[in-house]
Amino acid sequence: MTLAPPEQAARKYDLNFARWVRDNVNGGEKMSMCMQCGMCSGSCPIGTEMDHGPRKLFMMIRAGMKDEVFNSSTIWNCTSCYNCTVRCPRGIPVTYIIQDLAAKSVELGYVKKVQNARFAKAFWWSARTFGRTDERLMTAKYYWSGGLVDFVKRSLGNLTIALSMVRTKRMHIGAPHKIKDVKGLRAILAKAAEIDVRESKGGAS
């Protein structure tokens, strides 16, 4: 089963969405266990910082609100504290589902609209390329992902902070610092990706 890309979605409610989540999202097969008790949302330490708590997100999945789910801040703001997963009275791996929904939203091209997703993407780029976060390049990449206007506006807006960071050696000018064995890291990541493909339900489409 495949999902229509967001721009081609013919209607607001994709009635296949819950089934798609069940078949494609890590932990999705347990979603049918959800009894909407609210334990997860109530347990979330950053529940007030999310568009929707996990319970509501699950209800939206059942309702077929695909775009709203993939565009929600919920899937990106999750800190993976696992409170919801540990306390879920139905044994649903809430954290896994949310994490994988975020990954799937990248694959499906929802990312551009979601600020947190763009940040996550820039962070991952830096971690993968240098083996660590380069505050300067990562931030630049993140700002740039919002377009030229956003880039200039936010770069200038944060200039004072950036200069303070350079002064206190929290950020530097020059070649980015790398870990000793970037190649080794890439090999680890490639292996992880290989295991992921082998053991997970595969990609989004």
Binding site: C37, G38, M39, S41, G42, S43, G47, P89
Partner: peptide, 19 residues
């Protein structure tokens, strides 16, 4: 709602948290 947790506030009252 299944309350997520119960804490105790400064006055010693039990406080329910949840959605």
């Amino acid at each position: 709602s299944k309350p997520a947790s119960v804490s105790v506030d400064g006055d010693g009252n039990p406080v329910l948290h949840g959605e």
